[in-house]
Simulated scan of single mutants.
Amino acid sequence: MTDLLFDLPPPLVLPVVGQMRGFPVGRVFCVGRNYAAHAAEMGSEVDREAPFYFTKSATHAVASGQTVPYPPGTEDYHHEMELVVALRGPLFRTKAADLGAAILGYGCGLDMTRRDLQAVSKSKRRPWDTGKDVEGAAVLGPLTAVPSTEQIGDRAITLTVNDTLRQSAILSDMVHSVPEILADLSRLYHLRPGDVVMTGTPAGVGPVQPGDRLHGQIDGLQDVTMVVGPAP
């Protein structure tokens, strides 16, 4: 066996409420424009026929509760509060009715976005990578084991910045439900344990500045928090 030239960082491990073992994060899939009101505030329309996706690097994911530096290359860094689905089993070409065994549970997450760079990419019909996939741009809270898509229901999802309410909706406002998303995504990928899916954000996204305190909540789940640190 050839020795490695260098070591890579270990995976982010999220705590699971009531369990001694943690959840190692593998891939991070994200759903775009999954709340109609958010799509409208971005000047877009939702595609109700099927979800669409982008990804974030797992090495760019960080745990809740940290101070995350304001990233380089942007003057318009935005918050996006989201429901996160965590998988403990494989899925491939799976029907929506057969997903339960593969779902570990759910958590709160922040899909942080360099909005100005995303806007440039959109205007030039380019991928969103520089706007979406940046160090610290996926902030993931502890997971709660809820191995059923039927137990999410009409839970409230909110985000405050410096104790001021910015985002407020219910999960049933999602255009594409968790079962629909996972069934569709499993047609495109061999989903596997460790994958997480960020399911889209409600309306009310907006800019943050160094020193801001973000606090996201979904009824029945552990909160996600972060502080925006100074730019490096």
Rank of each mutant, 00 (worst) to 15 (best):
E82H: 10
S123P: 00
D7Q: 12
D195L: 08
H190K: 11
G220M: 03
A169P: 08
T113H: 04
R88Y: 00
L140V: 10
Y35P: 00
S186R: 09
V175H: 00
Q66V: 11
A61V: 00
I157Q: 02
G194T: 11
K122A: 01
M112V: 05
Q167E: 11
D111M: 03
D3V: 14
G32D: 06
L117V: 07
P230H: 04
W128M: 05
S148M: 09
G65K: 02
R88A: 06
G22F: 02
I181L: 15
E150D: 15
Q167F: 07
L110G: 01
G100A: 15
G211L: 09
A36G: 03
G18H: 06
A97K: 15
C30F: 06
P11T: 13
P202K: 07
P69E: 08
R93P: 00
Q217V: 13
P230I: 06
L221Q: 06
G229C: 08
L117T: 07
M198A: 04
V228L: 06
V134F: 09
V161D: 02
G131N: 04
H79E: 02
V25R: 12
T94R: 14
A183D: 10
N34C: 03
D195H: 08
Y53G: 05
P11Q: 13
P179Y: 12
G204L: 04
L83P: 07
L110T: 04
A96S: 14
D111F: 05
H38R: 07
V85C: 09
S121G: 12
G109Y: 07
G194I: 10
V228K: 09
L191N: 06
M198P: 01
D195N: 05
P15I: 10
T160N: 08
M198L: 15
M226D: 01
L104R: 02
A138G: 08
T149S: 03
Y106P: 10
Q222R: 14
Y53H: 06
G216F: 05
H215Y: 11
T55R: 14
D154G: 02
S44K: 15
V228H: 11
S64A: 09
P127F: 09
H79Y: 10
T130R: 15
A138V: 07
T164P: 00
Q151I: 00
T2E: 14
L4Q: 11
G220T: 06
C30Q: 05
L4R: 14
G32V: 01
P24Y: 00
C108D: 07
L165A: 13
S123D: 14
H79A: 01
S57M: 13
L12P: 06
Y77D: 00
D163L: 05
W128P: 04
K124F: 08
